[in-house]
Design a protein around this nucleic acid. Sequence first.
DNA 1: GTTCTTCTCAACAATCATTGTTGATGAGCA
DNA 2: TGCTCATCAACAATGATTGTTGAGAAGAAC
Lengths: 149, 149
Amino acid sequence: MKTPEELTSLFRARGLKVTPQRQRIFTILHDSPRHPSAEAVYEAARADMPTLSLRTVYQTLNDLASMGELAALDLGTGATRFDPNLSPHHHLVCIQCGSITDLHTVFPDVAVPTGAGDGFTVTATEIVFRGRCASCEAARTPELHPTHH
Amino acid sequence: MKTPEELTSLFRARGLKVTPQRQRIFTILHDSPRHPSAEAVYEAARADMPTLSLRTVYQTLNDLASMGELAALDLGTGATRFDPNLSPHHHLVCIQCGSITDLHTVFPDVAVPTGAGDGFTVTATEIVFRGRCASCEAARTPELHPTHH
DNA sequence: GTTCTTCTCAACAATCATTGTTGATGAGCA
DNA sequence: TGCTCATCAACAATGATTGTTGAGAAGAAC
C-alpha cells in the first residue's frame, strides 16, 4: 500500500479531490496489515469521523481498486475484502471465523500445463487454503483427548 | 457425481423422499460436466417440469452439498456454482464471461510451509487461475484475430 | 479570494442471490 | 392406508452493494 501522501498525489493527478474522508481511509488502509471489508473500514473511520457515510467508503475503496492501489478479494466470506498488500501472495481463510492470513510463499510450479486449459490466458493465480485458524481449531476441540467408544 | 440411482438410495437412507423434482435435478447434475448455478439448474429443469420452483432447486442442491455429493463453489462470479465433479481439481475462471473450466493437474508442492501459517489447519486447497477463456481473449483483440460477423 | 467543480451526506430505493414463512395440496414410503 | 414430508406459490426478509436525489460543504484552479 502506498503512503497516504502518495495516494494524495495520485488522486490529484487523476482529477479526484482529496477530502478528509478519503485521507482518513488512506491512513486506515496504510496502517492495517489486514483484509478489511468495507464495513470494517467504515467502523474504523467512524471512530473519529462520525458523520462519514458507508457510501463514501465504498466509493473510495472502489476508486483505489480501479487504480490498482488495492486488491478487491472475494474469498467466499460474504463480503468483499480489500487487501492493501499488493505484493504477490496467497491466503489462508478460516472457515469458521472468516479471518484471513497472508502467505508469502512462492509456488513456482503452479501454472496451467501447456496443452491443458484450452487456450485460456491466465492473468492471475490465486491459491486459497481453507481450514481453521489456531484459535478456532483450539475452540473446536475442548476435549483435547477424545475418548474411544 | 453419483448416478441418479445411487443418489436415490442415499436420500432414502437419510429419510429424505425421492420426488420427481429431485430425480430431475439428480439427472441434470449427473449429465452435466459444467458448474451450473442454481438458476442454471432451475432453467434446465423447468424445460420439462414447468411448475418446478427455484426454492426446491436450492433445497435439493443444498441437501446434496451437505451430504458431500456436490461441491458448492464461490468463485467470485456472483452466484454460487455447484460442482458435480468430486475428484480433486482446480479451476480456470474467465474474468469476462464467467465460464469455469476444470484443471485436473495435481500440484504436489502446494502446501503451507511448516512454520508459516501460525497454527492454521488446512482442510482444503483451492487454486484459481483467473484470466480469459479462448473465445473472450479472441473477442478482446479483434484486430489481431480477425473474425467474421 | 473567488469561482467552479466535485465530493459528501442523508435518506431512500433498488439490485441480486439466497433463505425464511405460510398454508394448502400432493405424493413418497413404511 | 396413513403419516410424514415435499412441493408450490406468493411473499417477505436478508445482506452486500450500487443508484439517486438535492442540498450543502469544501477542494482546486485561477
